[in-house]
Nucleic acid binder design. Structure first.
Length: 556
DNA sequence: CCGTGGACGTA
DNA sequence: CGTACGTCCACGGC
């Protein structure tokens, strides 16, 4: 039973249906209706791998107080195997049954009073496609339809397993199917639990940066005007501008004798020492960013009374497969980390992967010389020795190779890199060439990266860079997620809760007295993950791990 | 009202 | 030294 696939569906009203698979207790029975609490007890007793249609199942279970251990998320597996974002049940089902994808019934179609639901009780219509009444939500109408939906999730998962040949123990691809699925459970938990943020500390930071909380709309306008005036008093006589309008700012700068094609910060930086106007404008932008995107209204809409900042999480984006988060959780200005404070009697174990991308390159390309360099804590040092250049030069050469530089030709360091690490460079070259040709790519963990074809020379070159980047960034995301779900699972015994995933960084909230054990566990989980990734065991992955009360206290 | 692009924060 | 994402804003077409 343990680890066996079993279907599950949860209706919005909390009705749960499970469809046991395999030959265990209730195996091949027609499915059972139960409450969320009973489903939790079933999970504890049998620990199946729950086949779900999407993260929505976990969200409903969590709302009902139940967290399951593992799953096979049909949508996540579909995105992994086929690329792209679309993974609704009707679309995934059509793909699994070999039905024409352009004939998937639209869920937005006119409701026909659930007629077919009543007539047949069958989710699939005569053409084999799932009926829109079902995919639109009609599956949740009666215990019988919920049960059919759970059985269908199981069937979809089994079809995916047959098609992919994975899901049992074995290669990195099978492990990735499991971790990409289970990360959907983690996402549902991250959304439910939120990030600990101290409201008083956050409001203090905001008032220092953006001014006091406006009493009303007029007060807010006055504060904005005062902030604008600090910049505009440096403007040439008679000239003015709406600082929020890039076009007007450009005209204003031109009047001050500064001609720029756009007004982005990196372009204006060179003028900031000579022009008080530019210096004031750049300062204004920082304060404006905080007060608009991360101001009081941001706190009010996302920070709960329980001191948790909540957003939605997705397990993979549309490109290389990194996690995404809303509510600004992934792009919160670093200064605001000062307000991310662990609960009383708790700490954060903060861990970030070191030099993850070159290490991933060594692993996925199978380059033994580059793998040897990963034995160093700072792998750019052996690389620099090998190339006969200084460390900064070696680092730039490596990064340019991984991402495809647009300026210059790389010089001697780049040529030596080809001699020193031909396998790794060949891997990147192939990715670049395939992407330019418009052929789809696959990451080490098996994620399909869809490529367009044709286009202008500039688009073709951009596609080459995109392709080589996607294989590195994507594989790094897969490693990270495998690490994260391992920490999630092992950390349960310590009461350790992941509260933030930031591409190469984990924040784990845990009782103070468990801090050391949690830090050790996070390190052990990385070693375990690395073994899936480097069957030869010759690539070393490292993490900087520290226990802190406040996110800003970690060095980063 | 809605889509687009500039700008900028994070990795 | 490239890629990706989420968010807010002004702008211009409807």
């Amino acid at each position: 039973m343990r680890g066996e696939l079993a279907g599950i569906a949860v209706a919005p009203d909390g009705t749960v249906a499970i469809a046991p698979g395999g030959a265990g207790p209730g195996g091949h029975s027609p499915g059972r209706i139960m409450t969320i609490a009973e489903a939790g007890a079933y999970d504890e007793a049998f620990r199946p791998r729950w086949a779900t249609w999407s993260q929505a199942t976990a969200r409903r279970l969590i709302a009902g107080g139940v967290r399951v251990s593992t799953c096979w998320d049909v949508a996540a597996v579909h995105r992994l195997a086929h690329g792209g974002l679309r993974a609704d049940p009707g679309y995934v089902w059509a793909g699994l049954r070999g039905l024409p994808l352009d004939k998937v019934p639209a869920t937005g179609a006119e409701p026909d009073l659930f007629s077919s639901l009543e007539e047949t009780g069958e989710p699939a219509g005569a053409d084999g496609h799932l009926r829109p009444e079902w995919t639109r939500g009609g599956w949740a109408r009666t215990p019988g339809t919920v049960a059919a939906w759970a059985a269908l999730a199981l069937q979809a998962a089994e079809l995916q397993r047959q098609a992919l040949g994975g899901g049992k123990a074995g290669d990195a691809g099978a492990a990735t199917i499991r971790s990409e699925s289970t990360v959907e459970l983690l996402c549902a938990e991250l959304a439910a639990d939120g990030l600990p943020v101290d409201r008083a500390a956050a409001e203090n930071l905001l008032s220092a940066i953006a001014g006091p909380r406006p009493r009303d709309e007029r007060d807010a306008a006055a504060i904005r005007a005062r902030r604008d005036a600090v910049v505009l008093r440096h403007a040439p006589a008679g000239a003015s501008a709406d600082l929020r309008s890039p076009g007007q700012v450009r005209t204003l700068l031109a009047a001050a004798g500064i001609d720029v094609p756009d007004t982005r910060a990196h372009r204006l930086e060179e003028f900031s020492s000579s022009s008080p106007l530019v210096a004031a404008l750049l300062e204004w932008r920082k304060a404006e960013r905080i007060s608009t995107t991360y101001g009081y209204s941001w706190l009010d809409s996302h920070l709960g009374d329980d001191g948790r900042l909540r957003g939605e999480w997705t397990g993979c984006d549309g490109a290389a497969g990194r996690m995404t988060a809303s509510a600004g959780l992934h792009n919160m200005p670093a200064v605001l980390r000062r307000a991310v404070i662990a609960d009383e009697g708790h700490v954060f174990v903060r861990a970030d992967l070191g030099q993850i991308e070159p290490r991933v390159l060594a692993a996925v390309s199978g380059d033994r010389a580059l793998a040897a360099a990963t034995r160093a804590d700072d792998m750019y040092q052996p690389v620099a020795r090998e190339l006969g250049v200084d460390r900064p030069v070696a680092k730039v050469a490596m990064i340019a190779a991984m991402y495809g530089q647009t300026t210059g030709h790389g010089g001697a360091a780049a040529r030596r890199m080809r001699q020193a690490y031909p396998v790794a460079m060949g891997y990147l070259d192939r990715a670049d060439a395939e992407a330019r040709a418009g052929r789809d790519l696959r990451t080490y963990g098996g994620r399909l990266v869809r490529m367009a074809s044709g286009g202008t020379p500039a688009q073709v070159a951009g596609r080459g860079r995109y392709g080589r980047n996607a294989l590195i960034q994507g594989a790094a995301a897969e490693l990270f997620k495998m690490w994260a779900v391992t920490v999630r699972s092992r950390g349960q015994a310590l009461g350790a809760e992941i509260v933030m995933c930031l591409h190469d960084e984990l924040l784990v909230h845990v009782a103070s007295e468990k801090a050391e054990a949690a830090a050790r566990l996070v390190a052990d989980c990385l070693d375990e993950t690395a073994r899936w990734w480097t069957p030869r065991g010759n690539v070393r992955f490292i993490a900087d791990i520290a226990a802190v009360r406040c996110w800003a206290d970690a060095k980063g």
